[in-house]
Design a protein around this nucleic acid. Structure first.
Length: 202
DNA sequence: GTATGGATGTTCT
DNA sequence: GAACATCCATACT
């Protein structure tokens, strides 16, 4: 059992694309009454300032308020009416931007994640994909706005082991700004979402 | 292995 | 009323 501790906010880069890259390899610690579940982040996407695909592009709304918090806060929203998606706010307070956590590698409490995923236990089905990851970690709207740099039900921690080579590709599932290479991933990690082709690029 | 289409509900126009 | 940072089952090669 690792003694997970929240990462210092000062240790998070105050730039969205840089943060998206820096989050690869970091741990997400999720505590519930059932126990602790931990994943190692293996895939992210940056939604920086002035990005037409960002929810914050058209300014602050009730939904996107957490994106305007100081870096290291959770922005959780419902995508396509079916899946929760977890983001980490980036930049300084007042600037709307964030990083989507797209996939993780189970590190601790894998049995909890299997249960929450309806018994599915194959790697590609457990935490590969932003909706699947949130389901596995029991992340929902109740965690919207949570501080990920402080003790609590959900927080970030430093990488549990050395981070491998990081690749980049275009972002997945977008209808706007589809050309920017703002998706980052740990190369050759079996817990990635996305096609083989995307994961081999660049 | 890849491709396609439906379910779904919240948000904003 | 349209859009949507997804998932899953099904159908195919």
């Amino acid at each position: 059992m690792t003694d997970w501790r929240p990462i210092a906010r000062a240790a998070l880069p105050a730039d969205t694309v840089t943060l998206a890259r820096a989050l690869i390899g970091m741990a997400v610690v999720r505590d519930t009454p059932e126990g602790r579940a931990v994943v190692r982040i293996v895939e992210t996407e940056a939604y920086p300032l002035n990005d037409p695909a960002s929810h914050a592009f058209r300014g602050l709304t009730p939904r996107t308020r957490p994106m305007f918090l100081d870096r290291g806060h959770a922005y959780v929203y419902l995508g396509y009416g079916t899946s929760w998606l977890l983001n980490v706010s980036s930049e300084v307070e007042g600037v709307g931007a964030g990083v989507l956590i797209r996939a993780g590698e189970p590190v601790e409490g894998a049995h909890l994640m299997v249960d929450r995923r309806g018994g599915r236990s194959r790697p590609a089905e457990l935490t590969a994909g932003p909706g699947r990851l949130c389901q596995a970690l029991a992340v929902d709207r109740s965690l919207d706005g949570a501080d990920l740099c402080a003790p609590g039900p959900l927080f970030l921690a430093t990488p549990p082991r050395p981070v491998g080579e990081i690749g980049a590709s275009v972002r997945i599932g977008l209808t706007k700004a589809v050309e920017q290479p703002w998706r980052f991933f740990e190369r050759d990690n079996p817990y990635l979402s996305g096609s083989r082709r995307l994961n081999q690029r660049l």
